[in-house]
Computed example of a mutant assay.
Amino acid sequence: MPTARVEARRTGQPVELVSQRTETSRTYANPDGSFTSEISAGPERVKRNGTWHTIETSLAKRDGTLAPKVHPHDLRLNAGGGALPKSLRAARAAEPRDLASMGSGEQRITLQWKGGLPEPQLNGSKATYRNALPGADVIVEATQTGFEQFVRLRERPSGSYRYTLPLKTVGLKADEQNDGSVVFTDAAGRHRAVMPAPIMWDAAVDERSGLPANRHRVDMDVVPTGKNTVDLVITPDESWLTDPARQYPVTIDPSTSALSNTFDTYVQQGETRD
């Protein structure tokens, strides 16, 4: 710290105290002898082998999977494979395969997909598995702290629409909450990850906020299937999906996972949700 203060006074420029750097903060010595800390709400860098690396969520192929260039929780996505289901019924009967997995050591979460997956189209941090379900795409996006997975319905379904996402955990327990979310806790009872209550929205956009204008709650049942496995059964409201006023595509957003307690916030008058 004294060295940084001397260097800042000598050069007239702020000098970082590298020893004080963390995943979410950087501290600088100023020429006038004061200090300034820049703090972010979520992690911006990760330390590996004694060296700090800026988190970079752009996806690329690695060891038969897809992975961000730098991610704090070793996120891995499916690179595609297997026969695509020809119907929802066929998908529900298909064997599950890993879709997205993250964590390290004794704690890991793996979201699975029932049926084959096409080779995904990559766009930065987003992987799109087109036609993974009839008339629908599966999209997985790497985030700074985890991943987000959602299904995009390109066509109006003729009737009920339901699919299942198997979920495996290692070193974590999945508990369904009264608000429809799923919280993952470790052996000490600490919250390590969360899947908020799912919602869906159509293509209509609010002109003021630029956000979806029509949002609707999605039913999600958490069904235990084993010691460390559950099924997330996603059942969107049929009447909402088939409403003639609905603008397609419709996005169903059942799972956002993050091994942290951070979340994004926007501010809008009259809004009551995260």
Rank of each mutant, 00 (worst) to 15 (best):
K126Y: 07
D137G: 02
E106S: 15
D137T: 03
T143L: 06
R152E: 10
A188D: 13
T22K: 09
A83F: 00
I109W: 06
S158H: 12
S260A: 14
A93Q: 14
D63R: 07
A197E: 06
Y161Q: 02
F147C: 07
M200P: 13
N131R: 14
R92Q: 15
Y266V: 11
P2E: 12
G180R: 04
P2G: 09
P118G: 03
T143C: 00
L122K: 01
P166I: 08
V250M: 05
A174V: 00
L259T: 07
T256Y: 15
Y266Q: 04
M200S: 11
Q107Y: 03
T242A: 07
G81E: 00
L165Y: 13
M200L: 08
Q107R: 12
D186V: 04
V267R: 10
R108I: 01
D274R: 11
E7Y: 14
I234T: 08
P198I: 13
G115R: 02
T36G: 05
E141L: 00
P212W: 01
L165I: 07
D237M: 02
H53D: 12
T164E: 10
S34N: 11
L111A: 13
E207C: 05
V230D: 11
A90Q: 13
P43T: 09
W240T: 05
S19L: 09
E148N: 08
P157F: 02
F263C: 01
I139G: 02
F35S: 12
M220N: 09
N49H: 11
N30R: 15
V182E: 06
D63L: 05
Y28E: 07
V15W: 08
V233S: 08
I55M: 05
S19V: 04
D243I: 09
T242K: 14
R9F: 12
N214L: 04
A93L: 12
D175W: 04
T242Y: 02
L259S: 02
T11K: 11
E155V: 06
P196K: 05
T57K: 05
P120W: 00
T272D: 10
L66Q: 00
S101Q: 12
Q144T: 15
V182C: 04
V46D: 10
S257N: 14
V170R: 07
E56A: 14
S19H: 09
I139K: 01
D243M: 06
V222L: 07
L172S: 04
A29Y: 11
V70D: 09
L88T: 09
G50V: 00
R26N: 14
L133F: 00
N214P: 05
L88G: 09
P198V: 15
A136R: 08
N78S: 06
D231T: 06
R5D: 12
G124K: 00
D179L: 01
S19I: 00
G159N: 10
Q107M: 06
